[in-house]
């Protein structure tokens, strides 16, 4: 009896977990299949390299593609140094369990829980209305120059949003560097900063890159934070300076899906755009994974 019950419990656990795994895979497959079926026929070189035309019912998505790439790049450039330095301070220099370290950690954890639309409002209030306005006043601009939505503010807003990801994964990576390597370095007469630069950071590099991947794939897909801080509804020209507005794949998808006067006509465009967005994210992840395995192998083989 007992044995039988155990068997039943065991079997149902196996099937339950198996089913859950299957549902995940099936959903991903369904989504991909649907997107590819609807978008593949419309995907072409012209679609990728042309601006939208005919009130966004024709043409391509090049400005959105370019805008997304530029935005993500700027965000990465902004978030990586700040995030890595913060993590290094927390893990290497701040007294462990000191008040400062605790405060920063609590702040980071809470930052990670803030809804992304709030980051958008924060970006508008802080970067545009406070920093931007201050810059305009200080630099003597008569009309709005920095105090308006632009790619710089949007990328900085995204940088704040992804900061926790970078800090947490960098700290994790630093923790994973064996204590042995640090002591060996110090025993050879290296200073703490030499140990950091030559042993700890190289050892943590794969983990730091993982953080970068996570930050990028999170940042590239977020729309809410850039709504008020720089994304443009329709802008065939590419951004030319840091205060230009820009088009964005995610926002463009939203616009195509909800704002089109002729739903049937925009549907293939919409599908193709989503497909590009997915491809972009997958490629980014793939590139990052490749870098990671390469640095890992390099670290293991010692160059």
């Amino acid at each position: 009896m007992k044995h039988a019950t155990r068997r039943v419990v065991g079997l149902s656990l196996v099937s339950l977990t198996g089913l859950a795994a299957f549902v995940i895979v099936a959903m991903l497959a369904l989504i991909l299949l649907d997107v590819v079926k609807g978008g593949a026929s419309h995907l072409s070189w012209e679609f990728l390299t042309q601006a939208p035309t005919d009130g966004m019912m024709g043409g391509g998505i090049f400005p959105a593609l370019f805008g997304t790439a530029a935005l993500t790049l700027l965000m990465t450039v902004a978030v990586m140094p700040v995030g890595v330095l913060t993590a290094v301070y927390l893990h290497e220099y701040a007294p462990p369990n000191g008040r400062m370290a605790r405060l920063v950690r609590v702040a980071v954890a809470n930052l990670a829980g803030v809804p992304s639309i709030v980051f958008g409002l924060f970006g508008l209030g802080f970067f545009i209305l406070f920093v931007g306005k201050g810059m305009d006043r200080a630099l003597g601009y008569e009309e709005l120059h920095w105090a308006q939505p632009g790619i710089l503010w949007a990328s900085l807003t995204l940088a704040v949003l992804t900061l926790p990801v970078v800090i947490v994964s960098t700290e994790e990576a630093l923790r994973a560097v064996p204590l042995d390597h640090r002591t060996a370095s110090l025993a050879l007469g290296a200073t703490q900063s030499q140990t950091l630069a030559r042993v700890v950071l190289p050892g943590a590099l794969p983990g730091i890159l993982t953080g970068a991947v996570l930050a990028i794939s999170r940042g590239a897909g977020e729309v809410a934070p850039i709504l008020f801080t720089g994304a443009a509804y329709f802008l065939p020209d590419l951004p030319t300076s840091l205060n230009s507005q820009f088009m964005h794949l995610g926002y463009h998808t939203y616009v195509l899906a909800t704002q089109s006067p002729d739903v049937e006509a925009t549907r293939p465009l919409l599908y193709a755009t989503v497909m590009v967005l997915l491809l972009l994210t997958f490629t980014l992840n793939l590139v990052a994974v490749l870098i990671r395995t390469r640095t890992r192998r390099k670290a293991a083989s010692g160059h």
Binding site: H181, A184, S185, L186, A187, L188, G189, A190, A300, H303
Partner: peptide, 29 residues
């Protein structure tokens, strides 16, 4: 620590090349 060197109970080479391991103390110096 440069004047009083140490070899640990557990060998702990860096994940670097043989050359770079030995050159490490010289480089940081």
């Amino acid at each position: 620590r440069r004047r009083v060197g140490m070899v640990f109970q557990k060998s702990n080479p860096f994940p670097k090349s043989i050359f770079e391991n030995v050159a490490y103390g010289l480089r940081v110096g």
